[in-house]
Amino acid sequence: MRSARAGRPVVIKTPERGGKARLVEMAVANAAAVLAQSLASRSARERAMEEVQAALALPRLPRRIECTDISNISGVLAVGSLIAYVDGQPCRGEYKRFRIRTVEGADDYAMLGEVLRRRLAKTEWPLPDLLLIDGGRGQLTAGLLAAKEAGCPDLPLASLAKEEELIFRPGRSQPIRLPDASRGKHLLQQVRDETHRFALAYHRVLRGKAGLRSVLDEIPGIGGKRKRQLLQRFGSLARIRTASAEELARVGGLPLRVAEATHRLLNAVAE
């Protein structure tokens, strides 16, 4: 959408280390504080839920909102998170984490489908009044398919896209845009951001547990032969990690796509 407006390709980069990354973290923390202040009182949270129900045409007040998010690096160490908000407040005792089991490669839609099918298979868990998905129309479609396969075709679903904070609902050709001052919007943003934080925290745990050698085993396109070749040509795992994607392709003999995925993942593990 931004590329179309600018008339040229627009690339958005998110710093992961250093001073710029700390500035991003500070900005996110400040935004979270503003959202929390907007929903500090019980009456404010009630109003927020009423606004969400009206804007999304929900059949009932969304007292229980669940939200899911996927975190991975080029499809490796993929995890899903599921959080619950009850009466506008986080219910951390009901947060769930899912290690992706059935999807190979970077297919966020398939990963989302797996997480939702596993969640909806838990018939002993109460169903939400709203299942919110971090993403756009594609993620919503994946969620609808998973809900249908799980026998919950009438489950109220919506997705919230980060770029312009647009809300997508089934059966609506146009997304919903809530006013910036809307408490309902603040509630949905808070739920989405908390889900993202929870997913990233779990992903960092997995990255910390994964050694460089074991991470190489998980990268699609790197089998035993290529791993031995990399070690032989670079001499050590540490030198493989410090190599650029271009060096991994040129010296290590990897296809550029595999080299880029390897570079991203090894640097993420080292953070």
Results as ranks from 00 to 15, higher is better:
Ala261Cys: 01
Lys96Gly: 01
Ala21Phe: 06
Cys91Arg: 14
Arg2Phe: 15
Thr141Lys: 14
Glu94Trp: 06
Val205Asn: 09
Ala201Ser: 13
Ile12Met: 05
Gly88Ile: 07
Asp154Ser: 10
Ala84Arg: 14
Arg207Cys: 09
Arg22Met: 11
Ala110Thr: 09
Pro90Tyr: 03
Ser159Val: 12
Lys13Ser: 11
Lys13Leu: 14
Ser173Trp: 01
Leu112Cys: 00
Arg183Phe: 08
Val103Lys: 02
Arg239Ala: 15
Ser3Arg: 06
Gly235Cys: 06
Gly113Trp: 06
Glu25His: 07
Arg64Gly: 10
Arg137Ala: 12
Ile12Thr: 09
Pro9His: 08
Gly80Arg: 06
Arg169Ala: 12
Gly253Trp: 03
Gly80Asp: 05
Asp129His: 13
Lys96Arg: 15
Pro220Lys: 11
Lys185Cys: 03
Lys227Ile: 10
Ala6Ser: 01
Leu188Gly: 05
Val205Trp: 11
Leu116Asn: 05
Arg192Asn: 08
Gly235His: 01
Arg22Gly: 00
Ser38His: 05
Met49Arg: 15
Arg177Asn: 12
Asp108His: 12
His203Asp: 12
Thr141Cys: 08
Ala54Gln: 12
Leu132Asn: 00
Leu254Gly: 02
Val34Lys: 12
Lys96Glu: 14
Gly113Leu: 02
Gly208Ser: 14
Met26Ser: 13
Ala31Tyr: 10
Trp125Gln: 13
Ala84Ile: 10
Pro9Ser: 07
Arg169Ile: 10
Ala4Thr: 07
Arg183Trp: 10
Lys122Val: 06
Arg192Trp: 10
Gly113Ile: 06
Arg226Asp: 05
Tyr109Leu: 13
Asp180Gly: 10
Leu216Met: 11
Gly252Ala: 12
Ser43Lys: 08
Ala161Glu: 02
Trp125Met: 11
Ala29Val: 04
Ile73Trp: 02
Glu16Val: 10
Thr195Ala: 15
Pro220Thr: 03
Ile222Trp: 01
Pro220Asp: 08
Asp129Ala: 11
Pro255His: 14
Gln174Cys: 07
Val205Leu: 10
Lys162Phe: 00
Lys13Ala: 11
Cys67Asp: 08
Leu127Met: 11
Leu132Ala: 07
Val79Lys: 03
Ala199Gly: 11
Gly105Tyr: 03
Ile65Thr: 07
Gln139Lys: 05
Asp107Thr: 06
Val269Arg: 14
Arg97Trp: 00
Ile12Val: 10
Leu254Ile: 07
Leu254Val: 04
Arg2Trp: 13
Gly88Glu: 05
Asp107Leu: 02
Asp134Leu: 00
Ala54Thr: 12
Asp87Met: 03
Gln89Met: 14
Ala199Trp: 09
Ala31Ile: 04
Val28Cys: 09
Gly223Trp: 08
Arg250Asp: 07
Asp129Trp: 08
Ala84Trp: 03
Gln89Lys: 14
Thr242Leu: 08
Gly253Asp: 09
Gly138Thr: 08
Leu256Val: 12
Ile100Asp: 00
Ile167Lys: 06
Ala54Cys: 08
Arg47Trp: 04
Ala150Lys: 12
Leu130Glu: 01
Val115Thr: 11
Arg241Asp: 09
Ala210Val: 13
Met26Leu: 15
Lys162Thr: 01
Val215Thr: 04
Ala238Glu: 15
Leu131Asp: 04
Gly93Thr: 14
Ile176Tyr: 04
Lys185Ser: 03
Gln232Ile: 07
Arg42Glu: 11
Gln174His: 13
Ala48Gly: 02
Ile83Cys: 01
Val205Lys: 13
Ala121Ile: 00
Cys91Val: 04
Thr68Cys: 13
Lys148Met: 04
Ile222Asp: 02
Ala110Trp: 02
His186Phe: 07
